[in-house]
Design a protein around this nucleic acid. Structure first.
Lengths: 330, 330
DNA sequence: GCAGACTTGGAAACCGCTTTCCCTGGAGGT
DNA sequence: ACCTCCAGGGAAAGCGGTTTCCAAGTCTGC
């Protein structure tokens, strides 16, 4: 590997000068020497050793993003938003996937801390386990104590800058819209009880029904993914409208109904949450609550990088989008 | 930030001993000292500075993956496969997205080289531009000259270990299957001519038709994404069967037909390529060529890490999957 | 023509960790 | 007992950069 010293030697200058030429310093270097150094670097194919730079500078140009599952389009969109924002800042991105294991999440924070990344983004729902959350907070605190910056997309449970989707409000608004279509008997495919995102959406939905004086929905718990929606749909009773707490679950439910010959929306209405872009061509088109995922990812990065010490929590509203998967009751 | 020296001081041992205890060395350390060091590290909340370790060891535990677009489920699946494999090796992953800009790809190789990552994976179709490919090869060579390892998922054009989907053969087999259903007039939504993946699939398909003595298909070029498929579908003439060179284009085409009231498969048959998992609930279910994307990603990582100097190119066969989006002709 | 303010170049300290090399003390062999 | 070996501990030399601190010009303005 060719080092800066090689370049300096070849150019006949000192290490200091070579460094100043090749890696943006505030100091000026004479045109003649500058040219010599650049030529030498080019001839030798020099590539700065970033580990060494990071060590010397005490600051890296890498950020870390921790998501649950990259193949889930929800996280892909969020991560993509954050990565684009990072790219415009000239930052590299280290991505970790936890596959929904909170221990993994904690471990990643420790690892990213060890890497001395500039910032870490925790993307995804918190779990309702104070012990786990506590340990994660500890690890984050340790990281921040060393000058690290952190932000989160999800619930404001970590004491860091947070982009918080308005899950309760969005679900409540959706409930209102569906009730407005004349539905009265609802079921909620509620996902796992310990997932705060799922729980919030379920609670927001149920709460709104209560306020409207409608009967409580049938609540069916299960996994937060497509197969979870598929399985949960089998247990729905006499509801005329089913709310799956995320889009991929809704798609699973639709698949279940299709297989059983139940027509959507004629026989039952189905709604989801997130408005996943990849699903825009789904048939029937899914009624859902749109979240500006890319923007949220980008915003989270901004918040993390932001120098202000004050913690900011930004609510992001969802927008109800009615499509063909729900129908107006007679 | 607490350093190893702090730990050593607190434990009353030398730097060397502390290092040996905390970061797996071959050397033994007495139980008493070992315990003291571990306790000190724990109390202080020590996290090794990986930049320093990388520098001192001359080897990092990071790999780089370069993909075109993470929100495209094709790349998400490939990346996920590679990332899981990396995780089992205890490697961290740096992800770069190029958004199909070959210059970006080259730049990422340079950057990852600077990071001295253990390996880089180039995931995605090559472009048919010898100049660009040449510069990429140069950059790769520079990286490999410094001891870096590289692998590619796509076409064997880089002189590195490659996992190569059998695009031509898969498309040819698909053509055979569709012809077997009685179709004779075909159209190909061919994507961009300079994308080798797209071109290969198109060529494989056309070639098979020729061998079967069938007329050449109508070839329509356009972008490689959903909207590209949507637009291209508008230009299809009197074909009874349309082959989109990837699944997301096929979905776009289906959307276009749906909007125009053209029924699939009754009025026209549509097939794609890749068998994207997220699309499994699409209506109508998409006929396609299945590629084991996760395995391919994982395999590429294996190849990259593999010490053998001989470069290996692995063909991965696709499997034709007939589903409802195509019908048998009378 | 000269003091003082800028520039520009280089020597060397330092970033935090690994690892070689040296030293010491105790176990094992005869 | 004596000598050899070996295991465990520490000092110090890097790893490849950055940056502080000097020194030696180079310009200014009078």
């Amino acid at each position: 590997m060719v080092t800066l010293e090689d370049v300096a030697k070849q150019a006949g200058v000192s290490l200091a000068t070579a460094s100043r030429v090749l890696n943006g310093s505030t100091r000026q270097v004479g045109a003649a020497l500058r040219a010599r150094v650049e030529q030498a670097a080019d001839e030798l194919g020099y590539r700065a050793n970033i580990a060494a730079q990071t060590l010397a500078r005490g600051a890296s140009n890498v950020i870390g993003i921790v998501v649950h599952d990259l193949t889930d389009p929800y996280f892909a969109a969020l991560a993509d938003g954050a990565m684009r924002a990072a790219a415009t800042e000239g930052l590299l991105v280290m991505v970790g996937t936890t596959h929904r294991d909170p221990e993994q999440e904690i471990a990643y924070v420790a690892t990213l801390n060890a890497q001395r990344v500039r910032a870490v983004l925790l993307v995804g729902s918190r779990v309702a386990d104070p012990a786990v959350t506590g340990r994660l907070r500890e690890e984050l605190a340790r990281y921040q104590a060393g000058g690290g910056r952190a932000a989160c997309v999800g619930q404001d449970l970590l004491g860091v800058d947070t982009v918080a989707p308005a899950n309760r409000a969005g679900a409540a608004e959706l409930a209102g819209a569906l009730a407005g279509l004349g539905h009265t008997r609802f079921a909620v495919l509620a996902g796992p009880p310990h997932l705060v995102t799922a729980a919030d959406r379920c609670a927001g939905f149920s709460g709104a029904l209560r306020e409207l004086g409608l009967p409580a929905p049938q609540v069916i718990h299960g996994p937060f993914d497509r197969d979870g929606g598929y399985a949960a749909a089998q247990q729905v009773g006499d509801a005329t409208c089913v709310f799956a707490v995320n889009d991929v679950m809704a798609v699973g439910a639709l698949a279940a109904y299709r297989e059983r010959g139940v027509r959507v929306p004629e026989d039952v209405s189905v709604a989801g949450f997130d408005d996943i872009v990849t699903l825009r061509d789904h048939v029937p088109a899914l009624t859902t609550v749109r979240l500006p995922l890319k923007d949220m990812g980008a915003r989270a990065l901004e918040l993390a990088l932001n120098e202000e010490s004050e913690i900011v929590v930004e609510q992001v509203a969802g927008e109800v989008v009615l499509r063909e998967s729900v129908r107006r009751m007679a």
